[in-house]
Design a protein around this nucleic acid. Structure first.
Length: 340
DNA sequence: AAACATACTCCTGCTCGGAG
DNA sequence: CTCCGAGCAGGAGTATGTTT
């Protein structure tokens, strides 16, 4: 049946068509046992014919719940962001939620989610400093707001942190356990947490590292630095790469000077996404499990509020895991020869 | 007399406790 | 087994009061 105008079909329209009260329709559509099976069947059929869809706003008015969760996502490229987003959506659907996503100014997005009446909001925190407007808007939003991945915990919001330092520490331990002594690092020199973990590992494992073996991903001499470091005597036999973007650039530089992974150098890269095991060499990775992150995010956001009281914001850390694949192998003396 | 402020009533689509 | 009607939040509309 095609409708001529665009006014919404309501349970009252169905009630009229079925010759019953609207509350009977409401119950029938939710398969309430107080309505006879025959009547339920009849009402379902009519509802389908009339293209009925329940009005979410009205439902929320009574139920105070929509089973929609808002996701504010940063406008960022990269496999991590793609995979993280994917897992959040899948985990939500698994738990009977729908995810509504906005990629816009965070304050504007949060306000929009308040208007739409989503139950809770999650966001991936890329703020260096939380804008005051966002904090104000959070006060007005009635549900929970979960900040994921951020560096700092934020007043009044749940926090799901990532142990970046721990991840890098783990990477150093892994490489030194494989017998590597001389290590290099490629990445962002401003990422203090990762560098802190790395240096901690160097100290703990008594590995050999000098700042000359730091390759600045954002520096203009990246390729030259790689060439210089790997073509000299006593070159590093292992390198830790702090992001996938950096890895891709490093791979190009290695190809130019014929450095092979893992024959000439072992590599551990930060962030584990499925793609990392599907490249020419499967990469050994460290970082939080994306699956764990998504599961914990939903656990926090959907946790019952307990004994009536307003729930205190929770704080959780997702630990790092190391996944050993083909790019990091035991040290062999011939690795130390300069590549030509 | 016109302009503005405040208070109220109605309406929406749906759920749910209780009455018939 | 079915119906009645209160009530949820808040925008729109109307009525009344107060200030220029």
């Amino acid at each position: 049946m095609r409708r001529v105008n665009f006014s919404m079909v309501t349970i009252k329209d169905i009630a009229k068509a079925a010759g019953v009260n609207h509350s009977t329709v409401s119950r029938a559509l939710r398969d309430d046992s107080r309505v006879s099976a025959a009547m339920r069947e009849k009402i379902h059929t009519i509802a389908k014919q009339m293209d009925y869809v329940p009005n979410l706003a009205a439902k929320k008015l009574v139920r105070q719940k929509t089973n929609f969760v808002g996701l504010i996502w940063p406008s960022k490229e990269g496999l991590f962001f793609y995979n993280m987003n994917l897992q959040i959506q899948r985990e939500g659907v698994k738990r009977g939620y729908r995810v509504m996503q906005i990629m816009d100014d965070p304050t504007v997005s949060l306000q929009a989610f308040r208007q739409f009446g989503v139950d809770h909001v999650m966001f991936w925190d890329v703020f260096t400093m939380m804008p005051a407007s966002f904090a104000v808007e959070r006060q007005r939003f009635p549900g929970r707001v979960l900040a994921m991945g951020g560096i700092n915990r934020i007043e009044g919001m749940d926090w799901l942190a990532v142990d970046r330092s721990g991840a890098l520490l783990m990477a150093v331990r892994h490489l030194t356990e494989l017998g590597h002594r001389r290590l290099a690092y490629a990445g962002n020199k401003n990422n203090k947490l990762k560098i802190y973990g790395f240096l901690q590992g160097i100290a703990e494992c008594k590995a050999d590292y000098t700042p000359e073996h730091f390759i600045d991903y954002f520096g203009s001499t990246f390729e030259d630095d790689v060439r210089h470091i790997f073509q000299k005597q006593d070159r590093p036999t292992a390198i830790i790469v702090d992001s996938q973007q950096c890895l891709f650039r490093l791979l190009r530089a290695f190809r130019q000077i014929r450095v092979r992974i893992p024959e000439d150098v072992s590599v551990v890269v930060y962030d584990d996404t499925p793609e990392m095991s599907e490249l020419e060499i499967a990469f050994t990775t460290v970082g939080p499990s994306i699956q764990d992150l998504a599961v914990k995010a939903w656990d926090i956001v959907t946790a019952e509020a307990g004994t009536g009281e307003e729930r205190e914001p929770v704080e959780e850390v997702v630990g790092a895991t190391l996944v050993s694949r083909e790019s990091a192998i035991p040290f062999r003396p011939e690795m130390e020869l300069p590549v030509t």
